[in-house]
Amino acid sequence: MIMKNSLLFTALCLLGYACGGPGSSATKSITVKGSDTVLPVAQKTAESFMAANPGVSITVVGGGSGTGLTALMDGNTDIAMSSRDLKADEKLKLQDKQIEFEIKTLAVDALAVIVHPSNPVQRLTREQLEGIFTGSITNWKDLGGEDAPIVVYSRENSSGTYEFFKEHVMDKKNYASSVLNMPATGAIVQSISQTTGAIGYIGFAYMTPEVKPLEVSYDQGQTFVGPSMESAKDKSYPISRPLYYLYDVKNAEKVAAYMDYVLSAEGQQIVEQVGYIPLSK
């Protein structure tokens, strides 16, 4: 008897659950998927866009740039967020599937090189950074700091941020094996704030008072620029990269309103609130 009842109960649940599905088609729903770097912008713009347009629902899913692009190719998402350019095999796959993508830059991310606040080092050149991250410089005293080993934090080797830093700061050389890989930027901030000899890089949006940004030089030490909203806007800060939204041109109409919103003055204001650099007009 108990068995029968519970079976009946589960069957009813299942039925009620399944019926919930079709009702949703009345509202328009958009899925945004991909890079964890772009997530905060997507989440906040989605929040305020939905507040203004009650008929639309926007789902934001992380998972990484690769996840987003794969989902876009398979038609599992409307917009893919990416913090890196398409990889060669992804481009080939697109060609094979004959999908045409629209790539829109929605914001610029400045990468801040950060250390523990107690670290006396204020500035580094690109060459020094390359030395630190490839493992040829291992002690702070070689950089004018105290005699302490350098603890290097980086993002996971599959993240777009990792690739970007390698390409634009490390002259495409590989990271040293001793580099600590953190699963997310938040974890890097947490770790560097509690490790005195630490150095790492984070998106400017993640800056907090618990860590100290360094000034960097891309001209062998002639001029040093610190990361700030201003220096990133006037492009004097050298380490910055675009963040992308990608969508299938067939879906252009569906996502147009939201895309316009993100690129509008209001949307760009949210970009700045979150801590990324809005696109200059």
Partner: peptide, 25 residues
């Protein structure tokens, strides 16, 4: 809304908000 939707879940939520997001504190 349906079985084919994604969903948030408590353990994953704890993981993401303790390691990502721009304002961890």
């Amino acid at each position: 809304q349906s079985l084919f939707d994604q969903a948030m879940a408590l353990p994953y939520h704890l993981y993401v908000i303790s390691t990502s997001g721009t304002n961890i504190q």
